[in-house]
Amino acid sequence: MSGEGMRYDAADIEVLEGREAVRKRPGMWVGSTGERGLHQMVFDIVGWAVRAVLATGGGCVDVTLTPDGGVRVADDGTAVPFEGAGDGSALGLEALLTSLRAGPEPDGRHIALVGHCSVGLLVVNALSSRLTAEVRCGGVHRVQEHARGVALAPPAAVGPTRTSGTTVAFWPDAEIFETTQCSFAVLAERFRQVAFLNRSLEISLTDERRTGGPRKVRFRYPEGVRDFVSALDAETGAALEPDVIAFEREDPRMAGTMEVALLWGGSREERLHSFANSRLTHEGGTHVDGFHDGVAAAVTAWARRRGLLTAQDAGPGADRITEGLTAVVSVKLDRPEFLGPIRGLLGGTQVRACVGQAVREHLGTWFQERPDRAAAIVDRIIRDRHRQ
């Protein structure tokens, strides 16, 4: 081919904006046009609802899979008016549904990230054959209809209301997605995790597609990650120590809070689940490193005080200390530092130091207050170490 035929200049560049850009390359925004992308759409709308509920201190999010292939998400949180703030300081719901650059991805310790990212309401709207948004605030119930990302008419008042909240119903576009059927099991498992990690939140999931009648599950866990670890342990059998060791602490050095729960069970495997701002950190990170540091320091210090280790003995390795350990480590940070292309690894050196110190202090106090139970745990760790 000649150089003349390979010429490429500004005239060859196609600029797509807004809904056109999303519909042209849907996989760029939601990850795939298969089931995974479909679930990301649901997670994004549910994430919006969860943030609205947490902003009020707690409440309910109800998700329904409708018989005609739609998904309806209703919350009783703080509603965003269609027009936004009167002074222009905040964007309205209509702008968020129709503008790709309506604002940055939400962040901060009070934000629960339900999906692997927050793609924005326009993306869901543009990839849906139709979407209905309902806002209940200021005593008025208003509704707006959209088709493939375009508003069909201005928001219309449909009646008075005494409640506050938002309902978004959308129908994924069959022209875009390979399937429009969400997995009840996948959604339920993620919603269960989010409920464990946010104790003031209640999430329900109803499947109205079943021929045998609706199926519904509801998740609410007042004890937070303590309940999470109890549920994980129930899957493996009886533990040496039936009481979950759990604590919550705020540390300004890392600009956030941590919630940790753990117990040693009878299995030989470590089962550790870690989260940052409710996002699952598949690759771990500094909060996991800090957790391991703290557990190792507390176990080693208690063993030395009890004469199980001399001053010259090296402490047991991390693999021995965490053998049979079931734990959940959740941090909520104002400015989380995610590393890597899929943001599954948490960074931040202060996070490691803060979590390590907190775990060491709390677990050390727990050992002192329950010496018999501590002995059952630490003796096994030291005994297994000597058998190596």
Rank of each mutant, 00 (worst) to 15 (best):
G347A: 04
T326G: 14
F338H: 07
V140N: 04
G364F: 01
G34R: 14
G34K: 11
G356C: 11
V217W: 05
V61C: 03
D313L: 01
I111M: 10
W29P: 00
G149E: 07
F291S: 01
A376C: 11
A10D: 11
A301F: 08
S89R: 14
G224Y: 09
G284F: 07
R19Q: 04
G290T: 07
L113D: 03
F177A: 02
D372E: 08
T326Q: 03
F275L: 04
R268M: 04
G256C: 01
S200H: 11
I13S: 03
S278V: 07
M1Q: 03
T300C: 08
D251I: 02
V73S: 06
G285E: 06
E20H: 10
S89L: 06
A246L: 04
V260M: 04
L127M: 08
D87N: 13
R199K: 15
L131C: 14
V71K: 08
P172L: 03
I321Y: 04
I45E: 02
V186M: 06
V71C: 12
R130C: 02
G37R: 14
P106N: 12
V15R: 10
C182P: 15
R383G: 15
V71M: 07
V22C: 05
C117L: 10
V229Y: 00
L97N: 05
P81S: 05
L272Q: 13
V158M: 09
L91M: 15
H273F: 12
G256P: 01
H116M: 10
G285Y: 01
R192L: 07
R190A: 04
N198C: 13
C117P: 07
G285L: 09
L96I: 15
T300A: 13
G266R: 15
G108K: 09
D319E: 14
R101P: 13
T132G: 06
F367N: 03
G103W: 00
G159V: 06
A297R: 10
E17N: 10
E283L: 12
G294W: 02
A195P: 02
R271G: 04
V71H: 09
R271N: 08
A238E: 13
L205E: 01
E175V: 02
R360V: 05
F338W: 13
G212P: 00
P172F: 07
Q350C: 09
R220H: 15
G307V: 07
E235N: 06
A85I: 07
L96C: 14
R130K: 04
L339Q: 06
D379H: 05
R7L: 14
R249E: 10
A79M: 06
H292A: 11
